[in-house]
Simulated scan of single mutants.
Amino acid sequence: MIANRIKLTCLALVLILSGCSSPQSQWTQPPMAVPFQPTIQQQIQLARIDQLLKRDDLDNQTLAQVYYERGLLHDSLGLRDLARLDFNQSLSLKPDQPDVFNILGVYFTQGAHFDAAYEAFDSTLELNVRHPFAQRNRGIALYYGGRYELAFDDLNAHYQHNINDPYRVIWLYIVELEQDSETATEKLRNRYDAAIDHQDWGWQIVRLYLNDVSESEFLRQIATESEDNDVLAERLTEAYFYLGKRYHSNKDFSSALMLYKLTLSANVYEFVEHRFALLELNRLMTEVSLSQPVEPPAPPAQEEV
């Protein structure tokens, strides 16, 4: 009953949006989900791990695993400083953990420490060349670091492993917009057509970028097709982030600013889109400050004689 009520409320907001005439007014009443909250299971698991760490009969390998699991819990709750401490402690006990290097690389990217991020992802791939996310994450870090050719190489290789994954297509498109914006959309269309399976919801984001679906219809579908609040929160997190990227690339900074804030609103901490929304906000603020004209200093006042 509660989930249906939430869905109906969001649908009503989407209907309001569809009547708006400009992007600036469109985000005054956006569809929202109830933000994720710590679950009782997460809290119980965290308490159990804290109790476990008080024991003095655990070997280093077991301790490393326990710190890693607590780090993942802290990360899922948005406690990233605590998570980083746990991951570093885990690495000090067992240095050959590709998954730990991978998530630390993501943290370095979020903090715009790109050289450290590259090294972390390189370490991940040295330990596990088939790691499912490190090459993508390194490509994203290279993109944010402004190294677009290297970012394309990583993200294109990642895409080739699964051409039916819409998010691989999306990130490749985002990088190609920086390389050649005139051909990026044509290449996006070609990759969309090359995919055999379009069932994943993420393809709807690709359709949005291709202008095959309007923004109002895109949001309407999220509201009507999300089974519960969890799905709604996750899809809106993705939707607002990639809409923000679209407005950002079109230099509509005020709309992009609102959308990045909306990306953060549902507390879906583990999603890539939530992880990089703050980084995007910082980049946007820098762009805005650089785009403001610098007023020349006022001439010195003439002294009266």
Rank of each mutant, 00 (worst) to 15 (best):
A47K: 08
Q24I: 08
L17K: 10
S18H: 07
S22A: 06
T39F: 01
I44W: 03
V34K: 13
W27C: 07
I44P: 01
I40T: 10
W27L: 14
L52T: 06
P38C: 05
I44L: 12
S22H: 02
M32Q: 14
I16C: 11
P30N: 01
Q37K: 12
Q43F: 02
F36L: 15
L17W: 03
S18E: 07
C20W: 00
M32P: 02
P38H: 05
K54N: 14
I49M: 02
V34C: 08
P31A: 07
Q29Y: 15
Q41R: 11
T39V: 00
L52D: 06
Q24A: 14
L46C: 00
R48M: 14
F36N: 14
S22L: 01
S25G: 09
W27F: 15
I49D: 06
R48D: 11
R55T: 07
Q29G: 07
C20N: 08
P35D: 05
I40A: 14
Q37V: 09
L17S: 12
S18D: 07
S18W: 00
P35Y: 03
W27R: 06
Q42P: 01
L52C: 05
P30E: 02
P23N: 00
R48A: 15
A33H: 04
I44T: 11
Q41D: 13
Q43S: 07
P31I: 02
I16L: 13
Q37M: 11
L52N: 08
F36V: 08
I16A: 13
